[in-house]
Nucleic acid binder design. Structure first.
Lengths: 197, 197
DNA sequence: TTCCAGACCTAGAAAAACTGAGTCTCGAGG
DNA sequence: CCTCGAGACTCAGTTTTTCTAGGTCTGGAA
């Protein structure tokens, strides 16, 4: 009953690259450099003994085998996601890349969100930016900003609201819809509330 | 479309341990030490934020969550195996079928390559043969023989060379090019070197 | 009791993954 | 026909992860 399967991390790289048909975009999604994705995919191809991609100077094409393999792998990862969420809804496996707008940075403690070890655990990196687009291509997992919506299909929660005066919220925490309830988001929102309390 | 899933290698450890209800047996199956399995599972549990096993002094019990998770993971790995075999029948993660020429057999320990559990893990079966053709149609994964090349597109490494006397190598390990760097090949070559040292 | 099996822990070694900087190739635009 | 830009590749070096080796602890069996 021993499974004959390739190194699993390479599969993740392959799946993302196949979806984007780009190592660069896949790298963005996975939070690594394009070189890393390239290497992982190459190693996977070596271990399978077949080519999955045809490399073109301006992008990728799947080979016939890659074309056949990619949807299977996507299905596998989806099923894995489902199974995992069923038993562990707030999987704590991925650190967040966080965007922070300049005004928000002023309102928050000096080294936020690195000011406490508790929160730091959930943060991979922080960039100063306000660009919600970055959430869609997975360059960022969430953004903390002063600017209002509309946030479209994104999820947002407001922090520092003062309903008595009718004033608008001071800060907004914004992320893709599926991410709002996960542990990382909750930790960040909780901490923001503490900081503005 | 970013999958929120735990580290994949830990899942393999978990799945094997859940099937055997033993880290030790799982370790045997995976070709690592029990400590490694223990650590992988522990890390998985940490990233999920739940316990998968109850540790007893003489074995393991699945928790309720582990009980729910294990069949899902088995299914996922099975599907992965199926998908992989469909496109790459000679995946190099499998056990090797090994050819051995009669002279080589004389130079090596009695039950080689079954003489140590370490090496045995990587071997599916052994035949006495010298026929390099069998490597091309995947009847065999590798051949250990005294005969020289030419090996053409095959990869070969020499073992027991005595360069000072200019004598030729005693043994050659031969396999298809893509297989030379894989774990199985390395284990076999290392063992051959030990045996002739 | 004493043994033994199996899980656990920790330090250090080994392997794998990632980065960063530079190269190469092609397509587009002047 | 050049030059530029994008994207993939390579390689060395670093960081992170994984594995091992050796020792501890616990509870069941003789």
């Amino acid at each position: 009953m021993t499974y004959r399967i390739p190194a699993l991390n390479g599969l993740r790289a392959f799946e993302a690259a196949a979806r984007h048909l780009s190592f660069k975009l896949a790298a963005g999604e996975l939070g690594v450099t394009p070189g890393a994705v390239s290497q992982q995919v190459k190693k996977l191809e070596a271990s399978l003994g077949i080519a999955l991609f045809r490399r073109l100077p301006h992008g990728l094409l799947l080979t016939r085998e890659g074309e056949a393999y990619s949807p299977s792998i996507s299905r596998v990862l989806e099923e894995l996601t489902r199974a995992t969420e069923a038993i562990a809804p707030d999987l704590n496996a991925k650190k967040f890349s966080l965007g922070l707008c300049p005004k928000a940075a002023c309102l928050l403690p000096e080294r936020w969100p690195r000011h406490t070890a508790t929160l730091d655990r959930f943060i991979r990196d922080v960039r100063v930016t306000d660009d919600l687009e970055l959430l869609f291509d997975n360059s960022l997992d969430c953004i903390v900003r002063t600017g209002e919506g509309p946030f479209g299909t994104l999820s947002a929660v407001s922090i520092g609201q003062t309903p008595s005066s009718g004033a608008q919220a001071l800060l907004h925490f914004v992320c893709r819809a599926g991410l709002m309830t996960c542990r990382q988001s909750r930790a960040i929102v909780d901490d923001l509330r503490d900081c503005l309390a």
